[in-house]
C-alpha cells in the first residue's frame, strides 16, 4: 500500500498529479482509520475481559524505554519527510536511517517483552491472551512499516523522489506515525491502567 506510486505495466493513469495526490492521501487516511478499528477491537477486548486489572510482573522500565524509542522515531520520520520536501537528501537519509534504527531497537525491545511475557503470563492465560494478540498485531505493523522504510530508502538511493514528488516517502512516514500513535494507546492499556 504505502509506496504505491509506480504505475503497473500497461495501466495508464489519467488523473492529473494534483488529484492523484489527493486521492492517494484520502486512501491512506481511510486505510489508517480502518486499521485503528482493528486495534480498537483488541483494546476493547482487554477492558471487557480484565477491566483495569494487570499482573504484578510487568517490566515497566523496558516498556517505558521502547515507548520513548518509538516516539523518538516519529520525530526522525517527520524530519526525514520534511527534508525530502526541501530536497535535502543527506538529511533525508540521515533521518530515515535513524527511524529504521529506532524501529529495530523497538523490535528488539518487543522480543525481550515477549520472552518475559512467556515466563510470567503465557498466552494460555487471560492477560497473556490480551497481551500477546495486541503486542503481536502491533509488532506486525511495525515490521511492515520497517520494510516500507527500507524500500523507500532504497528507492531514494536509486534517485527516486524529489521536492515535488515524494508521495512514497509521505505515505510511509504517515503510516509510521500511525503505528506510533497506536502504541500510544496500547502502552497505557497494557502497562499503566490500574486502580
Amino acid at each position: 500500500m504505502a509506496a504505491a506510486t509506480v504505475e503497473a505495466a500497461g495501466h495508464h493513469d489519467t488523473l492529473d498529479p494534483k488529484t492523484r495526490l489527493r486521492a492517494n492521501r484520502l486512501g491512506l487516511w481511510i486505510f489508517i482509520a480502518s486499521e485503528s478499528f482493528l486495534f480498537a477491537a483488541v483494546i476493547a477486548a482487554r477492558f471487557y475481559l480484565l477491566g483495569v486489572d494487570r499482573p504484578e510482573h510487568l517490566n515497566q522500565e523496558l516498556a517505558l524505554l521502547i515507548t520513548a524509542v518509538l516516539l523518538l522515531s516519529s520525530v526522525s520520520a517527520f524530519r526525514a519527510e520534511d527534508a525530502m520536501a526541501h530536497n535535502d537528501r543527506p538529511a533525508f537519509f540521515r533521518n530515515m536511517s535513524a527511524t529504521l534504527f529506532f524501529g529495530l531497537v523497538f523490535m528488539v525491545g518487543v522480543f525481550f517483552e515477549y520472552r518475559e511475557g512467556m515466563e510470567f503470563f503465557p498466552p494460555q492465560t487471560l492477560y497473556g491472551s490480551v497481551f500477546f494478540i495486541t503486542i503481536g498485531l502491533h509488532a506486525f505493523h511495525v515490521l511492515t512499516g520497517m520494510i516500507a522504510l527500507a524500500l523507500v530508502i532504497n528507492l531514494a538511493a536509486k534517485g527516486h523522489y524529489g521536492r515535488d514528488d515524494y508521495w512514497g516517502v509521505e505515505a510511509t512516514v504517515k503510516y509510521w506515525h500511525f503505528v506510533d500513535v497506536a502504541w500510544v494507546f496500547i502502552y497505557p492499556a497494557l502497562y499503566l491502567v490500574s486502580w
Binding site: S34, F37, L38, A41, A45, T125, L126, G128, S129
Partner: peptide, 28 residues
C-alpha cells in the same frame, strides 16, 4: 476489522490455546 479481530481470537484460541472465549481460563 472487528470480524477479522474476533475470528483471529478464535483462531488463536484453537491454535495455541489463548483464552479469550474460554471460561475455564477466565475468558468470556
Amino acid at each position: 476489522q472487528f470480524f477479522a479481530a474476533s475470528l483471529l481470537m478464535v483462531f488463536l484460541g484453537r491454535a495455541i490455546g489463548m483464552g479469550f472465549f474460554d471460561a475455564a481460563k477466565g475468558g468470556d
